[in-house]
Every structure is written in structure tokens, then in C-alpha cells.
Design a protein around this nucleic acid. Structure first.
Length: 303
DNA sequence: AACATATGCAACCGCGATCTC
DNA sequence: AGAGATCGCGGTTGCATATGT
């Protein structure tokens, strides 16, 4: 037996909300609140709408302090950092961005940010100036890199820590994402603990025409230890690692990097691992996607 | 100017989680 | 304990608008 519908779908209005409906819903909620029952709310408010539709309209559009319009660079950075860390958990990401809704962020990611990070042309409508800029960046960064963090974790990173940390994302967007690092310096971190998420790199100024571009580069002496993913000591260059992981993650093939099931991963990540602190002790409740990125945040060594 | 196509975003849908009785 | 009701989330769709040809 299937679940009973939450409303009579044949007799409720669907589609865009009219200003009058908005006014009715807003007035009712401001006066009486939601009463913890969205299903009953539309009837009480005199609306011929499904409760779910009312909830969505309120949360995404009508409730106070909703921010509409362009996302700032800071917001971009936060979204990218969190997406790379926790995946498409839009409600969690939205909770870190006051005034933004999960729907907004999801739309923004799917329509703009993902393409921006992958270096895809955002549109056929691109101006000549934008095309030249993209070509310039592609010349500097032949493929996208993914998350690089300077510093090391002495304790598990919190969501806030992730949000504020100095992650460097796709150098296609280097002008946006690299500004938190001092230029001309080498950033290095030593791995103390294979469960730490740790990456590092060096950066130097490049000769971008407007002087605003910072190029991130990685020396060939940087290698990656696949301790968690491969259970061995297989080494790859950082560049190939980052490139492949980025492709998997951003092209929606994030699971590919996790070749082991939860039971195999558990003993590797250990009881004090930050993966546990983010998702609770019960890793069995985590989905493959939950931990696929964590386990690819594997230890790295600098020689 | 007309048509084709891409884009952005509001809204819908289905399903797992949680609550209530 | 378990069945139904509701919530909340993430994926997807549909349509108005913008832009290219």
C-alpha cells in the first residue's frame, strides 16, 4: 500500500505563486506561525495549495532576511569548500550562509559555480573580453586542481573551520580563491597523522596582464600517499591525483575514488578521525558519498 | 525582426527520516 | 512495536527571459 497523498493533488493549485497568495501566506505565518503542521496550514490560511508548496514558498522566498541576488566571492569560496568537504548537502551549506536558501545555493552551484570551477564556458553569450580572459587562464592552468589547504590540523576541522580555512580551489578561479595566501612563499605541512586532511603547495605570482592573478604550482617532488584509498603506498604525482579527483568529484563520479566499502574503511580511519567527528561515530550510517571525499583527503608527504 | 537556443530559477516530486498515536 | 502522517532534503523539471544567429 502506498502512502496517502499529503493533499488532494487534483484540486490544489500548482505553479507560480501570485502576489495575493504570497500576501495571504505571509500574513498568516507572521500572525500564527506554522503551528508545526504544514499540511493543515494552507486550509487555515485560506490557500488552495499543498502544504509542501507553502513550506517551500515560505522557506525559499517569503521568510524574513532572505538574500537574493549575486553571490559574493566569500560565499563562492564557502560553497566550494563545503561542497568539496561534504558534498551536495545543500541545507548544511545553506546554514553557513546567512540569508541564503539551500535551493538558491543548489541552483547557483548547478548553473554557475560548477561550470566556473571546471572551466567550462558559462555561456555561449560570453563576451569577447570574457573569452580572452578564459583563454588566458586556461593557458596558465591547463586543468583544474582541487582543494589544497595550507597548514595542518591539530584537531578535527569543524564546519566553521572548513568554511574559514585557506582552501585553494580550481586555479581557473585563482583570482578569487588564492587571495588568502601570502604570495611568493612556500607552504608546506608535514603529516603527523594519516587521518589528517592535508595538502600543500607553493605559489608564486604570475604575469597576468591586470596583475591580479596568482598562479598556484606544485613541484614534482610532491607525492601523494594512498594509504587510505589503496591501503598501500602507491604514489602518484600530486598533479595527476588532484586532476583525477577533481574530475570525479565535479563530474558527478565522486564515488569512483572509494574502492572499499564502509567496513573496510572503518579500521583505517580510526576512532579519533575527524571523519568520525563530522559524521558521528556510526560510520555505517554514512553513505558512500559521505566519506568518499574524506578518504581521498589522504596524507601527503613533502620531500 | 524572427527564430533558435541557452540560461536561471522557482517550483515540483519522490523518498528517507522522524514523529505521533 | 509498528503503521501512518508529516517533514525535510536533494534531484529534476518547466517556463520565462536573455542572448545569439
Amino acid at each position: 500500500m502506498g502512502r496517502a497523498p499529503c493533499c488532494d493533488k487534483a484540486n490544489v493549485k500548482k505553479g507560480p505563486w501570485s502576489p495575493e497568495e504570497d500576501r495571504q501566506l505571509k500574513e498568516y505565518i507572521e500572525k500564527y506561525g506554522t503551528g508545526g503542521n504544514w499540511i493543515a496550514l494552507p486550509h487555515k490560511a485560506g490557500l488552495n495549495r499543498c502544504g509542501k508548496s507553502c513550506r517551500l514558498r515560505w522557506l525559499n522566498y517569503l521568510r524574513p532576511n532572505i538574500k537574493h541576488g549575486d553571490f559574493t566571492d566569500d560565499e563562492d569560496r564557502t560553497i566550494c569548500n563545503l561542497y568539496a568537504t561534504i558534498g551536495s548537502r545543500w541545507s548544511i551549506i545553506a546554514s553557513q550562509l546567512p540569508g541564503r536558501t539551500d535551493n538558491d545555493i543548489k541552483n547557483y552551484w548547478n548553473t554557475k559555480l560548477k561550470k566556473k570551477l571546471l572551466g567550462f564556458p558559462p555561456s555561449q553569450r560570453k563576451t569577447q573580453q570574457q573569452l580572452q580572459k578564459q583563454q588566458h587562464q586556461q593557458h596558465l592552468f591547463p586543468y583544474p586542481l582541487e582543494i589544497c589547504r595550507t597548514g595542518s590540523f591539530s584537531s578535527p576541522p569543524s564546519l566553521e573551520g572548513v568554511q574559514n580555512s585557506q582552501y585553494l580551489l580550481n586555479p581557473m578561479a585563482a583570482t578569487t580563491f588564492s587571495s588568502t595566501l601570502p604570495q611568493g612563499s612556500m607552504h608546506q605541512s608535514q603529516v603527523k597523522d594519516s587521518s589528517s586532511l592535508l595538502m600543500f603547495g607553493s605559489e608564486h605570482s604570475c604575469s597576468s596582464s591586470d596583475g591580479s592573478c596568482t598562479q598556484i604550482s606544485y613541484g614534482s617532488n610532491v607525492v601523494v600517499d594512498y594509504e587510505l584509498c589503496n591501503g598501500g603506498q602507491q604514489m602518484r604525482s600530486l598533479e595527476s591525483f588532484l586532476y583525477e579527483e577533481t574530475q570525479k568529484l565535479l563530474l558527478g563520479d565522486g564515488e569512483a575514488s572509494l574502492e572499499y566499502n564502509i567496513e573496510e574503511i572503518k579500521p583505517l580511519v580510526g576512532p579519533n578521525n575527524w571523519c568520525n567527528s563530522l559524521f558521528g561515530d556510526d560510520l555505517s550510517s554514512a553513505t558512500t558519498k559521505d566519506i568518499s571525499f574524506k578518504t581521498t583527503g589522504k596524507a601527503m608527504y613533502y620531500y
